[in-house]
């Protein structure tokens, strides 16, 4: 058998074996058997030196050509088998995508915090700085400087929790004391909002809490008007409840404002037509407001003939209730996780 015949026979056999290799491992074994260090093609090439001199050039060329052909064949076969193998592994790796996901451990901010931060952001855009004040207050700031003298029945409007002390200390009944504190230490223009806890001596029920949160607003400057108050509150209502909301004023009495009003927003649910949520009135009460009383301005050394201002107060829980549909204010300090979890989503 000539060298060429030997090599042709080897090629045919190897080709047949490679076609039979069913998987990557068999192909790799084939490579080792033919092209590896001890493979038959490698051995043949190594044996060329011992051939008769005249046969060597032909045998060397033919052997190398065969090596290239087989390597090509192997590479094609390996690629096919590898692709097949990958598909098989991927198929075996399939999951039920409807199974529950691996939950990241996340808590939630309290709805009151969320509302305070949101209001603080909204008012910052309107030029109001957020400031904070003490919760244990003197009667002077909580009442006297707000035009609520001890000998007037207006003082009875606030059921007050008193703190044991030589002077008259109270748990602040509203965030309004900061009106005087801010004005005493700054000159107009003043634009602040004051969020925080307030306290009342009041029996608890679905709409009353002894501890709740308010946000006070105050703007004092030359030329501040009640129309500005309406515009500011309208902007607030639109940011919170939608771009077409309207604000309505109703005359009301708060000793530290004159004129005084309470303000309501038209019900977003029924667009002011009247529904169960707004008790058929089309309006939802939001808080109290008015023009800063001249005596309050005088009390902090502002000239009421030169400066005017508006002030308003909002109930934080009330706003959160209006927005989230919570119908019992006690839930906010109840802190049941089944309640709190529902505030993990953005309001």
């Amino acid at each position: 058998m000539s060298v060429q015949e030997q090599l042709d026979e080897l090629r045919d056999r190897a080709q047949g074996e490679l076609d039979d290799a069913a998987d990557l491992a068999a192909a790799l074994a084939w490579e080792k058997a033919h092209l590896g260090p001890k493979g038959d093609v490698t051995l043949f090439l190594r044996g060329v030196g011992s051939l008769p001199t005249e046969d060597r050039p032909l045998a060397g060329r033919a052997g190398n050509a065969l090596k290239i052909v087989l390597a090509d064949l192997f590479e094609q076969r390996r690629a096919t088998l590898a692709a097949h193998d990958l598909e098989q592994r991927l198929a075996a790796d399939a999951i039920d995508v409807t199974l529950p996901g691996r939950p990241p451990s996340l808590g939630a901010e309290h709805p009151v915090s969320q509302m305070i931060d949101e209001l603080s952001d909204i008012f910052a855009l309107l030029g109001f700085q957020t400031v904070f004040g003490p919760e244990v207050e003197t009667a002077r700031y909580n009442f006297d400087l707000l035009n609520i003298p001890a000998d007037h029945p207006a003082r009875d409007v606030w059921d007050t929790i008193h703190v044991e002390s030589p002077g008259e200390l109270v748990l602040r009944t509203h965030t309004s004391p900061m009106q005087a504190r801010v004005m005493e230490t700054t000159q107009p223009p003043v634009r602040v909002v004051v969020p925080g806890r307030v306290y009342r001596y009041e029996a608890q029920d679905a709409s009353h809490e002894w501890m709740f949160h308010q946000l006070e607003g105050l703007a004092v400057d030359r030329h501040i008007t009640m129309a500005d108050l309406k515009g500011t509150l309208t902007e607030l209502a639109r940011q919170l409840f939608g771009p077409s909301r309207r604000i309505r004023f109703r005359c009301d009495f708060f000793p530290f404002v004159e004129p005084g009003v309470d303000f309501a927003v038209d019900c977003a649910l029924c667009n002011g037509k009247g529904c169960r949520v707004c008790k058929g009135t089309g309006w939802l009460e939001m808080g109290g407001a008015g023009m800063v009383h001249p005596r309050v301005l005088e009390g902090v050394g502002y000239d009421p003939a030169r400066y005017s201002g508006f002030a308003f107060g909002l109930g934080i829980e009330r706003l959160a209730m209006m927005r989230s549909g919570v119908d019992d204010v006690r839930a906010f300090a109840g802190n049941d996780l089944r309640f709190l979890r529902q505030f993990a989503r953005a309001a």
Partner: peptide
């Protein structure tokens, strides 16, 4: 105002210069 009614009051925003709004660090 309470006899005439507040409904026709326009809604405007305060005009004039304001102090810059600073965020409370705490």
């Amino acid at each position: 105002a309470r006899v005439i009614g507040y409904d026709m009051l326009p809604a405007t925003l305060p005009s004039g210069e304001t102090a810059p709004v600073r965020r409370d660090p705490l």
